[in-house]
Every structure is written in C-alpha cells, then in structure tokens.
C-alpha cells in the first residue's frame, strides 16, 4: 500500500518542471552540443562542418600550450582553494571570538562576495597597475619592481590574490556558521581536559569542521576552474605570454577569439572530464576521512 501523497504522480513533476527545464536547456543541451562539436571541424564562418573523429582531441593533446595551461590551472586552483579557505578559516575563528560589534564585522567580511568578478578584477588591476597602482607604488618604494604586464609570475600572483579575495567571503560564511554550530561544551570539556587554545583548535575544532572544509574544497575547486574567468579576463587577459591562461580561459580564447570551434569544444569536453574526475576523487578519498 502506498501512502496517500504518493498517488499524486503528476504533481511532483509539475512542481519540478521549471527547474528541470532550466537545467535541460542551459546545461544539458549546450553540454551535449559541445560534445558533438568536439568531433567536427568547422570553417571559420560556421557555414560547413566535417566529421573529424578524434582529430580535435589529438591536436589539443599534442599542443604544448595546452599542457602549459593545465599546469597553470593546477597551480592556480590549488593556490586559490587553499588561500581562500585558510584565510577564511582564520577570519572566521577570529570573528567567532568577537562579542562586541560582531554583526558589523561579519557583514563587512561578507561583502566581497557581492562584487562581480569583473569588478573585483578591475579593483585589483587599479591597485597593482604598474604606473598608477597604490600597492605597486608602495612595492616600488621598498625596491620591488611590480609589472604584471611583463612578469608572468607576478601576473599569476595577482589573479590568485583577486580570486582568493573574492572567494574568501563565501568560505567565511560557511566556516563561521560551522564554528557557531559547534557545541560549546565540547570545547569546555577539552579545556578541562588540559588542552590549551592551540591544541583545542587542532584536536577538536578543526576535525569537527572537516565536513564543512570538504564541502568548501569541492566548491572552491569548481570556482577556481570555472568562475575565475571574469577576473582573469579583466586583469591579465591570460597574459603575459599565456602565464595566466587557465584551461577555461584557453577554451574561450581558442573558440571565441581564435574561432577554432572544434578545438575549443574538445578542450571543454576534456575540462568537464577533468573536473568530474577531480570531484569524484574528492568524494571517494577525502570524504571518508571527514566522517565521524
């Protein structure tokens, strides 16, 4: 016998239809198109196309620039995820201890998340502009020449900083919520059990935050892979010399600037597979360690 509500077979579908429609039209359809496109070579005007088998993939995988972009992406993603998470955790721990004016601090710390990626990029661009920038000027005063338009390492550092700054707020909100949900009595018990503040943090607080940290690691990886496009585009446009060209930026460059639709589609299929594999790996191996 089924419960009465289960008899309404149609209602759940009607309720889900708008969301399903959006996902189908804006996610699955383009994704399938990209996969299809990856197997064709198209002329620059999009007037004709020819089935090419795995030729697009072969071309991409034998291109040195692709491996450079892969390397850049891995360094960039790791730095962004770790940077954004550790700074956010530090800020959350400090904000959690604040009693007076706590809400003001929290609001201020959440603000960067409301800034559009391109705007964030422009802010950092101005701060570090080789000729006009405030911070580059200060760095020049202490003898560090800053020119991210010529120096690839500095350019990468700059987009990492901008991306970390932007993502930090998101992580902060989650870490703070997790910290405030920790039962106070656990930390009190640990204090009585002769654990000092430092030990309490590493043996009690940190392990108990690990489910949150895992969730954020997945979200930050996805963010670093895909959503930093706007920041990179405004700050460095992938340069100098491809030093800040991440995989997703290369997809855009080859496809929309270079008009090589086939190669671009092949890259995005590879990127999808890469992120899918990474997420699977995280769930398979890391999530086990964070259960308690």
């Amino acid at each position: 016998m089924s419960a009465p509500f289960q008899r309404h077979r149609l209602t759940p579908w009607i309720l889900m239809a708008p969301q399903l429609g959006i996902v189908l039209v804006f996610f699955f359809w383009p994704a399938l198109q990209a996969i299809e496109q990856a197997f064709y070579v198209e002329d620059a005007f999009g007037l004709s196309r020819e089935f090419a088998g795995f030729a697009n993939f072969q071309a991409v995988l034998s291109d040195k620039a692709y491996y450079q972009a892969l390397g850049t992406t891995l360094i960039f993603s790791l730095a962004v995820a770790l940077g954004a998470m550790s700074i956010a955790l530090l800020l959350a721990v400090m904000a959690d201890r604040v009693i007076r004016g706590a809400r003001i601090y929290r609001t201020l710390l959440v603000w960067p998340y409301a800034v559009a990626p391109a705007v964030a990029g422009v802010l950092w661009l101005f701060l570090f502009d080789p000729t006009l920038g405030l911070i580059s000027g200060l760095l020049g005063n202490i003898g560090i020449g800053w020119d991210h338009k010529l120096n690839g390492v500095q350019a990468l550092a700059l987009v990492i900083m901008a991306s970390v700054w932007k993502q930090m707020s998101y992580n902060f909100v989650f870490f703070l919520a997790a910290l405030q949900a920790l039962p106070k009595s656990l930390l009190e018990a640990a204090a009585i059990d002769r654990a000092g503040p430092w030990r309490r943090f590493w043996t009690i607080t940190f392990p108990l935050l690990s489910p949150t940290a895992f969730f954020l690691l997945v979200m930050n990886s996805v963010y670093a892979f895909f959503e930093t496009f706007g920041t990179i585009d405004t700050v460095t446009s992938g340069g100098p010399g491809g030093a800040t060209t991440t995989l997703v930026y290369k997809v855009y460059q080859d496809g929309f600037v270079g008009q090589d639709m086939g190669a671009s589609a092949a890259q995005s299929v590879l990127l999808m597979a890469l992120v899918g594999g990474l997420t699977w790996f995280q769930f398979r191996y890391l999530e086990r360690k964070v259960q308690y």
Binding site: P183, S185, L186, E188, A189, I192, I204, L208, S210, Y292
Partner: peptide, 12 residues
C-alpha cells in the same frame, strides 16, 4: 574533571 549534562563526548 567534569561530567557534562550532554556528556560532551568528542564525536570524532
């Protein structure tokens, strides 16, 4: 040593 009402055992 203290025994808490909710026991405060370390879950992990």
């Amino acid at each position: 040593a203290m025994v808490f009402q909710n026991y405060a055992l370390y879950p992990h």
